[in-house]
Design a protein around this nucleic acid. Sequence first.
DNA 1: TAATCGTATTTCCTATAGGATTCACGATTG
DNA 2: CAATCGTGAATCCTATAGGAAATACGATTA
Lengths: 228, 228
Amino acid sequence: MSPTPPRRALNRQVLADHVHEELMASLIDGRLEAGANLSIDGIARDLEVSPTPVREALARLEHTGMVRRVALKGYKVAPLFTAVELAQLVDARLVIEPVNAELACASITPALVAELKQTIEDLRSSPTGASYAEFRDYWKADEDFHRIIAEHAGNPFILNAYKTLGGQVQRFRFFAGLGVTDADTAIQEHTAILDAFSAGDPAGARDAMIAHLNGVKQRSIRDSVEHP
Amino acid sequence: MSPTPPRRALNRQVLADHVHEELMASLIDGRLEAGANLSIDGIARDLEVSPTPVREALARLEHTGMVRRVALKGYKVAPLFTAVELAQLVDARLVIEPVNAELACASITPALVAELKQTIEDLRSSPTGASYAEFRDYWKADEDFHRIIAEHAGNPFILNAYKTLGGQVQRFRFFAGLGVTDADTAIQEHTAILDAFSAGDPAGARDAMIAHLNGVKQRSIRDSVEHP
DNA sequence: TAATCGTATTTCCTATAGGATTCACGATTG
DNA sequence: CAATCGTGAATCCTATAGGAAATACGATTA
């Protein structure tokens, strides 16, 4: 008897989670353009679910800043960043991430070093083309590097703050729309941070992170000026 | 004709917003105890609405950390902070708020000084009893002080990060459950920050904020040790 | 032609119904 | 007495229906 073992537990998942992931992916990779209306009923039709889980997914998405809600009017994809906001986003990272680096480095483990080293390897081996499909691996490796450091800082509140920024970062990067323009420099800067980790030098890790983010900031501004 | 002008627009508001506010208030003032189950249907019955807006309100609340969700199981009020988490929360504030103070002070205006001065006045004039009703005004004044500084830092991303922490702070403070034990010291420390603002001394404002938060941290830990 | 009006569609919002699962609790059985 | 089983309630989750307002759009009229 019991021809099929309890497979059902695997199938059983909450639709709102699925919708949330789907929307998040669409926002990050640009399938949903800035300013686009996010019709609840429309999304429900597209994904073949009812509006209820869509409402829940959108409510969760609101705090990320990627989606804006106006009561009784609906949701829209947040507008593109201006050059000022873009710089502010990096400034916010400059507040949080150097501390992350310092803390994570202070409790360094060989496993962490190995993880970070792997992300830099991935960065090197990933293509850097101009379309999302091409540089998605590059981005993932870059995001992994920063996220792993944040996760090892040991402060869940700071981690939460970083994660909120993280989504923004990814979205911004897509809309910069240039593909990867600074792979060599970024790899170099990540390596400098990793070296400080390997040496067990928290202050050095902090400074290397500051230098990296300042580099990101300047290159971002430069790119956004050259390609308005 | 048109016997009643468009009054309806005032009545028209989204139930989810109302539920959200109601839950937030209950969480902050402790009517909802840590670990309590947040039954969607139950809340809907209590507030005499349908479960749909309740789901939306809870989804919005999740990212604050005050509420935890387990798929297919429901929502619970997040557990109380441990002493370690409590210290971590202040550490997170120590990352963000000194920068806020420095930035806000760098673009100081007489209006901002007046606003801050007012919150300190409110702090002085508020009762400091042991029940929520008594020290709610004190809290509000304290929270206003920090929030106003965050709002004047001029970086919406950092402000967002601060706000997320802010809710946590308030909840923690209630659950410390002692009323206000450090009014004099807190007023003194706020005044020191204000003085630096008045003097147009960003570095001084930053340092005064650091000193204040360190004081908050130490007093919090002391209180939580004395009243486990 | 230009403006206004009316209809039809869309959209948000809320309530309700029902399926699936879990939980509580009492009854039954060894 | 202890353990197991079964029933009913509670709960989460999703779909559907329908009200209210906004929007689109075409027809009518000055």
